[in-house]
């Protein structure tokens, strides 16, 4: 680390608890001395421990795996645990992800939204027959397994929904997370559904044809998922299905 004097960071944090009428929506400033290797997770924990125990925010894994700490950092959705304060100016604005139900302060209910989306898109493996748990699994080419795993890396953090102008304007839009799920099951040879089935799920303006290619999702995804490629691929497939049946 450099020997420069540590910066004093100012965190302007959105505060509001919708279930408590005594807490109107407001921004509260907290000052904190920066320490080496400080992430937003560390900073928020320190604020809660030393300055304001009432501050609400979500964390589980602290390693960019669980997706619960997504928030809007200086206007851009991202994972707090993976954001180093060293990469940010001394003035830091923290807001909850828009597009999701606010629990309190920086904590939003992404789970409720994700569950609704998953149920609507039937985002689970539809197998032809009940799997025989005693039999060996069918083999899969490593390249195919890799490709499916690549899309399965989605942690449902909600950044793509908050980074998408379309999803912000149209609350029934499934967003990149939804289209990525369809792309993932479309790829999977174990899934018995074909394009006609997937078309029924995303072949309209709440699905892939609602996407306006703003690519905010692609640019803010903390897992660097290939969303531009996947959405274009899905769009071509669904257009073919819609035109030719």
């Amino acid at each position: 680390m450099s020997s420069n004097a540590a910066r004093t960071l100012t965190f302007n944090v959105f505060r509001h608890n919708p279930r408590d009428s005594a807490t109107p929506p407001r921004v509260v400033a907290y000052s904190l001395e920066e320490t080496p290797g400080m992430t937003l997770f560390i900073a928020l924990t320190r604020i809660r421990e030393t300055l304001d125990p009432s501050l609400s925010f979500d964390f589980v894994c602290r390693a960019g795996v669980c997706g619960s700490c997504a928030m809007v950092v200086n206007g851009r959705p991202g994972l707090a645990c993976r954001t180093l304060t060293a990469q940010l100016p001394a003035e830091i604005r923290l807001f909850p992800l828009p597009g999701f139900e606010l629990i309190a302060d920086l904590s939003v209910n992404t789970g409720k939204w994700m569950r609704g989306m998953s149920e609507r898109l039937q985002a689970w493996l539809h197998m032809q027959e009940e799997p025989d748990v005693d039999a060996l699994e069918a083999r899969m080419e490593p390249a195919m397994a890799e490709a499916i795993y690549e899309l399965d890396r989605c942690i449902e953090c909600g950044c793509c929904i908050s980074g998408c102008g379309t999803a912000q304007m149209r609350t029934d839009f499934v967003g990149a997370v939804g289209m990525n799920k369809i792309a993932r099951f479309r790829l999977d040879p174990r899934d018995a559904r074909d394009d006609a089935d997937f078309f029924d799920l995303v072949g309209d303006d709440t699905g892939v044809f609602g996407c306006m290619s703003l690519l905010g999702c692609h640019d803010v995804c903390p897992k660097q998922l290939p969303l531009q490629t996947q959405i274009a691929y899905l769009r071509r497939g669904m257009a073919r299905q819609g035109l030719l049946g």
Partner: peptide, 21 residues
């Protein structure tokens, strides 16, 4: 609501493709 939401979103995100739209 849509106008307001998009405008706020665009100004906050400062993302070229979002602004170009």
């Amino acid at each position: 609501r849509q106008h307001r939401v998009y405008w706020t979103h665009m100004r906050s995100l400062r993302h070229e493709d979002t602004t170009l739209w």
